[in-house]
Amino acid sequence: MLQIIKIEWLKVKNYRTFWVFIILSLLSVLAPNFIIHDIFVKRIPKDAQKLLGASVYDFPLVWQTVASIGSYTSGIFGLLLITLVTNEFTYKTHRQNIIDGWERRDFVLSKLFWVVSLALVAFLTSLIAVLIFGGIYGNTPFSFENCHYLFYYLLQIIVMLLLALLLAMLVKRTGLAIILFVGYVMFLEQLLVFIAKRYLGNLGGLFPLQAGDELLPFPVLEKVEKLADPNYKGPYDNEVYLAVLIIYIVLIVWGVFRKMLRSDL
């Protein structure tokens, strides 16, 4: 595996697009927090804030805030992954890697390495965001309470990256894969969720990205729902959504291996 990681590093080390994407991705985790702070802390009158209780950047709420915001912008990591994978098909280097002496499974492992790496980059950047924004904007001392939200975020981004990987492996062309991915993340899944919730009820919340969103409600919206109904609870326990996310991970990894191991390259 170390050899595979070294080879992947050689592929991106001098690839400018990769580094531009990485910088944008890091900014996409950090920057929205300035805007959210501006809207929900600075612009809301002090009296109204009291109604909402603790600031969204106070510990322990900041864990949930940063994770929830991150889940909206994490798609950019998916775009980077699609670019890395479809590049191989465009340049036919996926064939050359096998010809030169990789097993087909090594190629899949090399891309799964990026899924894990990018998810960890997103996770660690979010952790830094929690420390920065909780430290600067928050008025409460540091606490690990609620830190599980960041792990939910990690799980959601892994599912999202795996979806991007599967799409890139199936479509192979960069432009089309990116359009389909952006379409799916931005509105297609929302549409499917809307239709499914209408006809199938709560099952509609179990789509891959929606399941993650259900685990990461934005604190203020959750509070508003609880203000309306103090006993408000999501349709399913968190364990259900977690289990569904893990099932998606297993299914997509299986699908990617099956596609790569069986088809002509």
Binding site: K11, N87, Y91
Partner: peptide
Amino acid sequence: NFYHYLSGYRNLQIV
């Protein structure tokens, strides 16, 4: 079949 954005030398490093 090579990475278009890399030099000949770096492509051979990968191989």
